[in-house]
Design a protein around this nucleic acid. Sequence first.
DNA 1: TGACATTATTGACTATCCGTCAATAATTGA
DNA 2: TCAATTATTGACGGATAGTCAATAATGTCA
Lengths: 242, 242
Amino acid sequence: MQTLTRKQREIQDREQLILDTAREMLTHRGYLGLNMDAIAEALEYSKGTIYNHFSCKEEIILAMAVETMSKRSEMFDRASNRPGDSRQRLTGIGVAAELFVRLYPEHFQVEQIIRSASFWEKTSEARRNALRGCETRCMGIVAGIVRDALSRGDVELAEGVCPEDLVFGLWSQTFGAYAIIATSDSLSHVGIEDPFRSVRYNINRMLDGYGWRPLSTEFDDLGQFDAICEEIFPEERKLIAG
Amino acid sequence: MQTLTRKQREIQDREQLILDTAREMLTHRGYLGLNMDAIAEALEYSKGTIYNHFSCKEEIILAMAVETMSKRSEMFDRASNRPGDSRQRLTGIGVAAELFVRLYPEHFQVEQIIRSASFWEKTSEARRNALRGCETRCMGIVAGIVRDALSRGDVELAEGVCPEDLVFGLWSQTFGAYAIIATSDSLSHVGIEDPFRSVRYNINRMLDGYGWRPLSTEFDDLGQFDAICEEIFPEERKLIAG
DNA sequence: TGACATTATTGACTATCCGTCAATAATTGA
DNA sequence: TCAATTATTGACGGATAGTCAATAATGTCA
């Protein structure tokens, strides 16, 4: 491993700088405010230099997605390693997921863009794989908890139902809810005052429906969020406190 | 009510033609293939004429959204009027929702676009209201079934939980799942072979978790889809049979 | 150190697409 | 029939993605 020259370090740092600038623009000026000329101007480099780092606009957006997704898989990992019964560990994952969307509110904008048709055409396989890797890792962590619960006898699955079906339920429930929350001005006009609380509650109902023990009648399903959050993510919790 | 001249009818018909063309382009050529020049060329009118109908590109997309959403609210309405116990009626709504995404696979592309930041700026209030109306109607239909179930004693809600919380659970679960399904090549790489079946199963688990009677242990929760589909939507069912 | 090779940077340029509007064509009504 | 009204046209302006030959900076080696 060769040490890098000053120039090489400069280039490497700039890559991160581009991503930070792009993220800031997406957050504050919306998708239309995120354009190559604006990034170049903000960084006081020419457009060509930006294109030396990323071959197209889509690559920048994909790189942002990889950054946040890998942060999320780290958080999932930390949550899954917490001691406790299987249902508590799963609750930890839920805490991680919620904390994540609150820490990175712009993530769902990015997710929305990368999920649109014809986004992928010009992107590199390396980055595509990096993103898929994060997705698979997150899925695997959660499926691992389910399998663990199965082997401990905390939950049973009916014939023809696999752990991934349950994980898909958690995934679609949280993904759908957070996407709706992130892209609506307010949900109070349809009668939902605290959508995050609502998500937690509904997920616990689903787990109860699966018969995952201990059932939420045996513990305080809504009250434990803050405690678990403080225990696993004290640093991150401070960040969203404001 | 004045009868329209030939010219006026021609103009009215063209509006629908524009929408059909736009929908076809979005489906087959993706978002980037949907542009005003292409629409004008396909219809053999000039761009200016298209702009006489819709003041901007966003208005066309929004009009497509209103079309499909109002179709969906019709389907919800038909489903909710079916006789049966409250849980069967809710299952009917589920059938309608699933049938809808299969009939209009491009709808989630549209939904994704209209949910992106800075989409709404140039759109007209009339169309925005039309869309919100459909949303509120759908929500209201489902919330109505929940309230009905409450009054019949089929389900009880804990202190501090309102019917809309439950509806939000169904909404986010299905929205999330269908969005993931519509924008992924395949889910078999994460171990989910039949995601639609998985959604139905998970929703029934959630309703069981709410204690909504009859519980799915008392009926065939997975087997009833085809029967209900045939009963309420025989025509639509033929369309997706191919 | 200085001359030459390599690498990085620049910004003018092309292409594409949204949206405008003055000129032109078609339709209507008296 | 002809003037007024309405509809249609497509060239044009402006914004932005992406290219590439010219130029500047950096690295290498006698």
